[in-house]
Simulated assay, not measured.
Amino acid sequence: MTASRTWPPVQHERPYALSIAGLDPSAGAGLLADVKVMEALEVYGLGVCTALTMQHDADFRAVEWVALDSIIAQCMPLADRYPVSVVKIGLVQSLPVLAELTDWLTQTWPGLPIIWDPILKASAGFDFHAMTSQTLLSTLLPRLSLLTPNVPEVQQLAATDEAVRAARTLSVYCPVYLKGGHAEPINGVTTDRLLKDGQEIARFPAPFLPDGEKHGSGCVLSSAIAAGLAKGQPLPEACATARRYMNQYLASSPGLLGFHQSLP
């Protein structure tokens, strides 16, 4: 018997968030990390795989891409059954694949918030691809509710070396959360920024931790923001909560793999 949307009944104690991302066997990044974050923040995390990676926290060896048709096929039964509140997209093969995927998502879930964490290079040092199509970006970005690049990613996406200027440029199309971890800390503080319509609307300072580097930290942050949006928080509040979660996560262990815990 084919499962229906209503029977057996689905849980409604927690909202649902969908991660569409790569599989990292070490669980420090990608799909597995995203679901850990969502669980810690009391959101039910669903997962769709876009890539099979051969890696651990310190070494990236290879990637096998999942075809777009297979990605959508994984999404379809979830769309039939669960009231998804937000989608977070991580590693994808290319901008054209991302454009087709977001087109399907916006048709299937009209008005659903979509976050894209633009993973262009693995933290272990592997370059995935060069995404440089400004025409495609101008078509794609308006479909997003948030873009979460780090400094090198925003420079590459906007084709400019000045990170804040690049973020301002991209924020004309959709809000941008610019992660400050790759920038030089000032007086022991790193600063993340939220930008919208070409203007900075919020800052999130955090103490710089000399031993705070973590594999998959960008995945963790974007998933924490997704969890906040799934719970109905306005975007600035969701970003502030996610930054608090990141502070806790980065300090959770001395190694490259951190531990996930609920916020106090």
Rank of each mutant, 00 (worst) to 15 (best):
Met1Cys: 10
Met1Lys: 08
Met1Val: 14
Thr2Asn: 14
Ser4Asn: 13
Ser4Val: 08
Thr6Cys: 06
Thr6Val: 14
Pro8Leu: 06
Gln11Lys: 13
Leu18Lys: 03
Pro25Trp: 02
Pro25Leu: 12
Ser26Phe: 00
Ala29Pro: 01
Ala29Gln: 04
Ala29Ser: 14
Gly30Tyr: 00
Val35Pro: 03
Leu41Met: 13
Glu42Cys: 07
Val43Lys: 03
Val43Phe: 08
Tyr44Asn: 11
Leu46Gly: 06
Val48Ala: 12
Thr53Val: 10
Ala58Trp: 13
Phe60Thr: 05
Ala62Val: 01
Ala62Leu: 03
Ala67Leu: 13
Leu68Trp: 03
Ser70Glu: 11
Ile72Val: 15
Ala73Val: 08
Met76Pro: 00
Pro77Met: 02
Arg81His: 12
Pro83Glu: 04
Ser85Ile: 03
Lys88Ala: 06
Gly90Arg: 00
Leu91Asp: 00
Leu91Gly: 03
Val97Tyr: 13
Leu101Lys: 00
Leu101Cys: 12
Trp104Asp: 01
Thr106Phe: 05
Thr108Met: 09
Thr108Arg: 12
Trp109Met: 03
Pro110Thr: 11
Pro110Arg: 04
Gly111Ala: 07
Gly111Cys: 06
Leu112Lys: 11
Leu112Ile: 15
Pro113Ser: 15
Ile114Gln: 01
Ile115Pro: 00
Leu120Met: 12
Lys121Asp: 07
Lys121Pro: 04
Ala122Gly: 09
Ser123Trp: 01
Phe126Trp: 15
Ala130Tyr: 10
Met131Lys: 05
Met131Gly: 15
Thr132Gln: 10
Leu136Thr: 11
Pro142Gln: 05
Arg143Phe: 02
Leu144Gln: 02
Ser145His: 05
Ser145Glu: 07
Pro149Gly: 10
Val151Lys: 00
Val151Asp: 04
Val151Trp: 01
Pro152Ala: 11
Gln156Ala: 15
Gln156Cys: 13
Leu157Thr: 08
Ala158Cys: 04
Asp161Pro: 15
Asp161Gly: 06
Glu162Ala: 08
Ala163Ile: 05
Ala163Cys: 06
Arg168Thr: 08
Arg168His: 12
Arg168Asp: 05
Ser171His: 10
Val172Trp: 07
Tyr173Val: 02
Val176Leu: 07
Gly180Leu: 04
Gly180Tyr: 04
Ala183Gln: 15
Glu184Asn: 10
Glu184Gln: 15
Val189Ser: 06
Thr190Gly: 02
Leu194Gly: 11
Glu200Met: 13
Phe204Lys: 03
Pro205Cys: 09
Ala206Pro: 00
Ala206Ser: 14
Leu209Pro: 01
Pro210Ala: 10
Asp211Arg: 14
Gly212Ser: 11
Gly212Ile: 05
Glu213Cys: 08
His215Ser: 10
Cys219Asn: 09
Ser223Ala: 15
Gly232Trp: 05
Leu235Phe: 08
Glu237Met: 13
Ala238Val: 09
Ala238Asn: 14
Ala238Gly: 09
Ala240His: 12
Arg244Ala: 15
Tyr245His: 15
Met246Trp: 06
Met246Tyr: 14
Tyr249Asn: 01
Tyr249Ala: 05
Leu250Lys: 02
Ala251Cys: 09
Ser252Pro: 01
Ser252Tyr: 06
Pro254Trp: 13
Gly255Lys: 04
Ser262Thr: 13
Leu263Gly: 05
Pro264Ala: 12
